[in-house]
Design a protein around this nucleic acid. Structure first.
Lengths: 199, 199
DNA sequence: GTCTATATTTAGATAGAC
DNA sequence: GTCTATCTAAATATAGAC
């Protein structure tokens, strides 16, 4: 067909394959999903998938490369927030919001798993995770200075813990059940100083 | 060698293979681990592994079958506790204690993953998870009655959430880092009534 | 660029000797 | 009971036509 590289058409084809890949990887897992399955879902031949992505690991990784700019945008949005604790809760809830996609838990699991085995994937994940981690750490430090957050907490460790809690909320997300209220309560109470009587 | 079925020897052999399997499954994942790898780790032949476990899925599942009696014992130990909140914290910390095993995070992920694909494994997991869930629910109800726990919380939902938080401790587990303090703080503050000044 | 057809590799599982 | 040897199936990746 088109002899010339049409960037738009290339992008559309990549999206189509990646969308099929998200379905299939979520349903069957990385190893359980064959490239033939992905090709069928995208209504192309297996060779076409390899033509666009080179190999299966690269196809999988490409699903998460979009997370880096998304993380950067999220952190930037709250960088200048006045109310640090409120900003932290908003960031955490934004992260958890993606869990509404029914494929999200399964894909997160595949991601965590593959991360230990694919160094390039690890790099992608580390980049987006550390953007979030830095963003949260900054907000926590601000809350510590203003006295909004319990002075006995370490900013970086607390940021890691909050990220883990978000991940756990994802993993246990069940259809028709929103984790946001429990998550919000958890974060607010975890951060609060105990000077007003607390437990 | 021994012509007669010696239950003790059988148990030792099973343990030896399962120990190797835990290493290999944690390191390479379920699909990534070949039975040949497990056999090598246990210093037997692949055929011996199949002789004892039938197939790879059964071998994997057997790693988690021991969790059911362990869960029952844990719940029983705190069934008659006077201080409900203290008992809840103890149960949760006991659950998280296994996270110190460096293989634990990887195995948890494999477990969650395989659960959606192996109905028999799902059954095993459900059994031990529901033992814990029932135990926690009972303790939470007791804390609600005594006013130790915030009356606005639903016992069953809170039990589920606490189980998620334990998962978070697993996910956050890194060598040389103890999750207990963050976990304890999270649980205590989540449960506390807000009548004394709250968040 | 997209396909069909296939080469290659690998791993789960079994047969049968000892 | 444990081994060696092997069968079989499946999937990644490529070659080459169109």
């Amino acid at each position: 067909m088109a002899r010339t590289a049409d960037p738009d058409r290339v992008a559309r084809m990549r999206d189509r394959i990646m969308s099929g890949a998200a379905d299939v990887f979520a349903m069957r897992g990385f190893e359980g999903a064959s490239v033939a399955d992905v090709a069928r879902a995208a209504e192309v031949s297996p060779a076409t998938v390899f033509y666009y992505f080179g190999d299966k690991a690269t196809l999988f990784r490409s699903l998460f490369e979009q997370d880096i700019p998304k993380a950067e945008a999220l952190v930037a949005r709250y960088a200048d927030a006045d109310d640090a604790v409120r900003a932290i809760v908003d960031v955490v809830e934004s992260l958890a919001k993606d869990a509404t996609d029914p494929r999200a838990p399964a894909l997160l699991i595949e991601l965590l798993r593959r991360t230990g085995r694919d160094p390039e994937l690890l790099d992608v994940v580390r980049r987006s995770a550390s953007v979030i981690h830095e963003g949260l750490t900054t907000l926590i430090e601000r809350g510590l200075e203003s006295g909004q957050i319990d002075a006995s907490l370490d900013a970086r460790e607390t940021a890691s813990w909050l990220q883990s809690v978000v991940d756990a909320a994802y993993l246990n997300a069940r259809p028709g059940h929103c984790p946001a209220p429990a998550l919000r309560r958890t974060v607010l109470r975890y951060l609060a100083p105990e000077n007003r009587g607390g437990p």
